[in-house]
Amino acid sequence: MSEYRVTRRSALGSNALRSERICISALPEGHVIQVMGKEGGPDLGAFLSEKIGGGAKFAVRIAAPFQWYVVGDRALSPEETDTMLDTLHPHAAGVDQSHGRVRFQVEGAMVERLLAKGTGTDVSVEAFPVGHSTMTLIGHIAAHVTRVGEHAFEIMVLRGFAESLWDDCARMAQEFT
């Protein structure tokens, strides 16, 4: 038995990088449920928002065709997660990714310029309106990007890459801070 106890700690802690034109801040490690619908099946966005998203803004995000993420700031108990996953049956299947994906927010007047350094996706508000989300590469790291405001994006990334992507974003923000 190791003398070191395994302890849970957040991937990004309470890190924040704040300046007038750009601000990067870690978001609570709440819940992330990946929902997989049936190939060629219906759009479950409204269903998910009502049944398991609690109607919260930006709770349901498109991940891919017939796939969604349901995210929230509140950590769920195993029972709550089970109830949520049962609700999906038989329309879709769900996987709890709460410990696998980490979110942080990038906001400020220069946020589009910052992201444009790392991704080939058009992040202008015309092509990427508020509420829109997509999976893309930022540098060499795949991340799920959601626009949550005119000058604010949420970035969700695999836990193991969270610190690296945070550092990349901080470096990309350097000229604006």
């Binding site: 891919a64 080939g120 058009d122 092509a127 997509t134 999976m135 893309t136 590469l137």
Partner: peptide
Amino acid sequence: PHCGMRPKEE
């Protein structure tokens, strides 16, 4: 067709 224009690296 799902995501729009993307760099080939993706």
